[in-house]
Simulated assay, not measured.
Amino acid sequence: MIEDLKAVGKTPLSEKVYSTLVESIVKGTLPPGTKLQEQHVAKQLAVSATPVREAFRRMERDGFIESIPYCGVVVKELDYEEIMDAYACRANLELMAVREAVHKITDQQLDLLVHLSHSAASEDDFMKTSENSSRFHQTIYQAAGNKVLIHLMDSLSTVILRDMKYSAMDPKREQEILSEHKRIVQAFLDCDEEKAVRAMSVHLDNGLAYMKKRR
């Protein structure tokens, strides 16, 4: 419950408030429907209202909370129909990105993919894990060089980034993701388009299966 939240340290406060609240939502400490009052959260986390307000804005943008008229801010229910639809769109776009990126990726971008596929964050740093995963996929989109594709992926970012944070909280799934990323990178190193597509397809299928298990 909200009373179980731990006080956060000093700067940057809004980032720490965001991480604390998102972690509590992902772990189920703050279940869907929980009402979050700005002043109450600020008191529990021993911060002022400003970083809480900033964190709330980011959390709403990322799909973790929603503002309901005459009720206030509440933890948002996961919309599994939305997740299924988003994954269907994402799969087609990501596989398209891989096909284009394999032949266009620069040495610098490839080096970054290698680095990210070997960058395991500490067990308690799920934010870093999700950020690494996001950068991995963003690098492939950029390598593809398709501006329309990048724009379309941005429109799915709310669902995708939210789901990455859920996956990052699971140590077993985190290790699976790193292994899947390494197989994708190896296909890029081999400049093997079909191998890269298969590796990405397996990665996306496993991600979808993981989210289904959370129902």
Rank of each mutant, 00 (worst) to 15 (best):
V75L: 07
A101Q: 08
A7D: 13
E77R: 12
S179Q: 09
L95V: 06
A86T: 15
L208G: 02
N132I: 02
L21S: 02
R183C: 11
T129A: 08
M153Q: 00
C191Y: 07
K147E: 13
T106G: 03
S67Y: 14
D125R: 11
S201Q: 04
S179H: 12
L110Y: 08
V159H: 01
L161Q: 08
R135H: 00
D154S: 08
I184V: 13
V185G: 03
A97V: 09
S24E: 08
H137P: 00
G145I: 15
Q138S: 13
C89Y: 10
A199Q: 06
R61N: 09
V17N: 01
E60Y: 12
V22C: 00
N146K: 03
M1P: 11
L161V: 12
I68Y: 02
L204E: 00
V47S: 01
R61K: 14
A168R: 01
S119N: 07
C191M: 12
Q138V: 15
L161W: 03
L152M: 12
S122Q: 09
P12Y: 04
M127F: 04
E66S: 07
V26H: 02
R215K: 06
T11C: 06
V8N: 00
S155Q: 07
L5K: 06
A120T: 15
S48I: 03
K182G: 05
R215P: 00
E131G: 01
S167L: 15
S201E: 07
S179N: 07
R57W: 12
S157T: 03
K172P: 01
I25V: 10
K165D: 05
M96T: 14
E81W: 03
I25M: 04
F64P: 09
L36Y: 01
Y87A: 10
E131W: 02
L113K: 05
T129E: 13
A121H: 09
R90Y: 15
L36G: 03
E38M: 09
I2D: 09
I2Q: 04
E193M: 11
P32G: 10
A42G: 02
K76F: 01
A187Y: 02
Y80K: 11
S19M: 03
G28A: 07
D125P: 01
I25E: 00
F56L: 13
V75E: 00
V74G: 09
H137A: 07
T29M: 13
P12F: 14
V8G: 02
N92M: 15
V185F: 09
M169K: 10
A49Q: 06
D111C: 07
R173C: 11
E176Q: 14
H118Y: 14
D62F: 10
E54K: 14
D170G: 07
L208M: 08
A120D: 12
S167Y: 03
D125C: 04
I68H: 02
E60Q: 14
S179C: 13
V26Y: 03
A196F: 07
F188S: 06
E15M: 05
P32C: 07
H115N: 11
E60K: 15
